[in-house]
Design a protein around this nucleic acid. Structure first.
Lengths: 211, 211
DNA sequence: TAGTCACAGTAACATTTGTCACATGGACTT
DNA sequence: AAGTCCATGTGACAAATGTTACTGTGACTA
């Protein structure tokens, strides 16, 4: 096995060996820097991306440039939207921005379709991806439909902590406000209340979760 | 061709003849009355449903019984969530309620999975369903994330008119409020403003769209 | 050291939305 | 006709959120 194949196997343990070989011989290994925008609303989707390392933020863009967080992509995952849209020659309805430097494999559209038929493990991966993302998006809807900003903020912080695997969140109030589509002042206000309730400790550019 | 096959072919023109035969010989034709709840949050999904006639409302349920409209299912469509969840033995995260009397075909889980591999037209149908529903859900997110209640109400009315194919919407303010997760008074207030702007005419139990 | 900048805190106010209370008016029943 | 629903209209107020304006503070730099 080549080194690339070993990496793939580690990050995507459910892929069959034949599939991994196909990926390795047909795809591009690429790197992206934090801050890069990989995909943008309205762009045509020509390929999908399998994440090997790093983190990508998927969000919906409002008319005035608001960013509304949908979910994070992490190693072992792929962008559900690109998997779906790729089926027909479609433009993206979301924006993908690199949060932590990323190493990834890009897979051309044509192959994906072929693999669905030929590789059971690819088919299962795609279905699994659809399902989990759909669920995640449903949860997002729950939050904005049924919950007030204070609960949404709590949910956001927990999700973020889970994504980075630690209790210290290094974001400014401004950045959080953007992702929740509210204003910095509101975030400050609510965080202050959370601090009074003993749920967080606030520092400069850092929020320490106590939950 | 049997009568059932002719109906299927008419409502699902893209299905291959072999697929239609398989559906006809393996599935149950069922009817549901308006008001029936076909699927409920937390229930196990054992089958999916292809709609032949009528209309079904898919919504998300809040903790206190709020109903938040996701989308409508119509003839020629299937529930994306059931297609997805069916892959693994999964509980439903949405509720499906019949709006207009429905005739439908229920398809057991096991067959769906088999057909994905054997029938190209089924595979394409499933992928298409995923994609369009995902897009619809993204639009819903846009609405609640970026828009205020007045815009959401307008959007809701337009969508409803489109679904029923007419300009008269026969819903009470109370029903609309439920689906937008707000209160009747707010809906009344906003509708009144819309009437003043010449966008609608208000009658008892009916809203006439002028847009 | 002084200046600058980004981040955070906060008071005051505006706006939107939710809630309560009550009125009106049509449709239907008795 | 009187009574009873139900849908709707509306004023008054409460609560949540958005906005404006200003302050303080730590970090960095000229």
């Amino acid at each position: 096995m080549s080194e690339a194949e070993i990496t793939l196997k580690k990050v995507f343990p459910n892929f069959s060996n034949e599939l991994i070989q196909e990926i390795e011989s047909n795809s591009n290994f690429q790197s992206f820097k934090a801050g890069d925008v990989i995909m943008r609303t309205g762009q045509y989707i020509k390929s999908t991306i399998l994440i090997l390392k790093g983190q990508i933020k998927i969000y919906r863009e409002g008319e005035d440039g608001e960013e509304f967080l949908m979910y994070y992509l992490q190693p072992g995952q792929a962008c559900a939207i690109s998997l779906i849209c790729a089926a027909k020659n479609q433009t993206s309805q979301i924006t993908a921005k690199v949060v932590e430097d990323v190493e990834a494999v890009t897979i051309p559209l044509a192959l994906m379709d072929k693999w669905m038929m030929n590789h059971r493990s690819w088919y299962e991966f795609v279905i699994y991806t659809y399902r989990t993302r759909f669920e995640e998006v449903l949860e997002v809807i729950d939050n904005i439909a049924f919950r007030a900003m204070d609960e949404r903020l709590e949910f956001y912080l927990k999700r973020h902590a889970k994504a980075c695997g630690c209790k210290e969140i290094n974001l400014s109030h401004q950045e959080i406000a953007l992702e929740l589509n509210t204003s910095r002042e509101v975030v400050s206000r609510l965080l202050k209340k959370m601090e009074q309730r003993g749920l967080v400790n606030l520092h400069r550019n850092q929020i320490e979760l106590l939950m």
